[in-house]
Design a protein around this nucleic acid. Structure first.
Length: 361
DNA sequence: AAACCGGGGCA
DNA sequence: TGCCCAGGTTT
């Protein structure tokens, strides 16, 4: 069942109107709004859009600006890589397209920062091209309407959705009769996804295409689109040296950048390397080496297995300095001052366990 | 804290 | 060509 006629009619009555970028068919302005809207909600974009256009009224002005000027206008919007693409795109429009945006999706998609969906949106709004968009909102609309199972980010599923998006375009006949059909249809898809066919609590009772919506018919709007398969977190294993001598523990300050930047932690080493070799390379007089049970910590981006190796070091003063040209951040720390050091939470927890087991003294 | 996101970049 | 992710915000 075709949705285009109902969607077009619905958009004209219930869709969003009067937004600054809807009052023009200037591809520069439409392009700018599409890029900004990729990452930010309409309400936040409005002010940036106005300020940006005031500063850079034409694509030529934007192309001539310095990156610093562009970044300054973009500051606060986030996703700064896209501001760089924006600038590069403007320069490319000036340098290779004579200052006018190309007029087909096929050509638009060759510009930096413009992918298939954005290219189609610009072509549809500005040039009434029968080009299909497929952004996140539209994926949700079609997944539900056509009852498409599977994670929409999967190749096969996405291909199905693109096929549906093309199939549902207003017919050539409709577009001939109504020059605004593509603009209304494209805007309608976006508006439907943004205002009614929302991820949670969709307002199906107001939806113009609910009659043929499979998810609605089967009461499965909260199951479609299928949730992205939770990617198993990458796994890393590190060995950590718990070198102690009476009242003291050997810690190492981490580099300022990266995980636990600047915090004090246990010295790390390769999980498969020999603890005895490591101790001698550090000039530690190891009295006893005892591997402990693995300790798991889950980060946002990966699972870290810590393989602690407990090393009792003899009382006698051992000098770290000579062996430590490559690890200058190593330092003996008194157990009493541990609490005042910035220790990563999992390390603190690990050490606390040892303390309560009276392994450390 | 977890879900989500178009396009770029890279194998 | 196909997959992954950086870099953010929203729920």
């Amino acid at each position: 069942m075709r949705i285009a006629p109902r969607l077009i009619a619905w958009q004209r009555v219930h869709g969003r109107h009067g937004l600054p970028w809807q009052l023009t068919r200037d591809p520069y302005r439409v392009w700018l709004s599409e890029i900004m809207l990729q990452q930010t909600q309409v309400a936040a974009v409005i002010d940036y859009y106005a300020r940006f256009l005031k500063k850079f009224p034409t694509v030529k002005k934007l192309a001539q600006a310095t990156s610093a000027e562009v970044m300054a206008q973009w500051a606060g919007l986030g996703y700064y890589a896209r501001a760089r693409n924006l600038h590069a795109c403007a320069q490319q429009v000036v340098n290779t397209w004579g200052g006018s945006f190309p007029t087909t999706a096929q050509e638009l998609v060759t510009l930096p920062g413009i992918g298939p969906s954005t290219a189609a949106a610009i072509a549809a709004f500005c040039f009434a091209e029968r080009a299909a968009i497929l952004d996140g909102n539209v994926k949700r609309v079609f997944s539900r309407h056509a009852g498409i199972e599977g994670d929409p980010s999967l190749r096969v599923v996405e291909q199905q959705l693109w096929a549906i998006a093309r199939k549902q375009l207003p017919t050539a006949r409709i577009c001939e009769d109504d020059p605004d059909a593509m603009a209304s249809y494209t805007q309608g898809l976006m508006d439907l996804g943004a205002t009614l066919c929302t991820r949670s609590r969709p307002r199906c009772s107001e939806c113009p295409i609910r009659a043929n919506c499979i998810a609605h018919k089967e009461g499965r709007t909260d199951e479609l689109p299928s949730a992205r398969a939770r990617k198993a977190l990458p796994e890393r294993t590190v060995a950590m040296l718990i070198a102690h001598r009476p009242g003291q523990l050997l810690l190492e300050q981490r580099p300022q950048t990266g995980i636990w930047g600047g915090l004090w932690s246990l010295p790390e080493f390769e999980p498969d390397s020999s603890s005895a070799d490591l101790c001698s390379s550090l000039g530690l007089n190891a009295q006893e080496i005892q591997p402990l049970t693995d300790f798991l910590h889950v980060f946002t981006h990966y699972r870290l297995t810590i393989r602690p190796v407990l090393v009792r070091v003899s009382k006698e003063k051992t000098s770290l300095k000579e062996s430590l040209d490559n690890r200058p951040a190593l330092q003996w720390i008194s157990l009493a001052s541990l609490d005042s050091k910035g220790l990563p939470a999992p390390i603190r927890k690990l050490l606390l366990g040892l303390k309560s087991d009276e392994v450390l003294s």
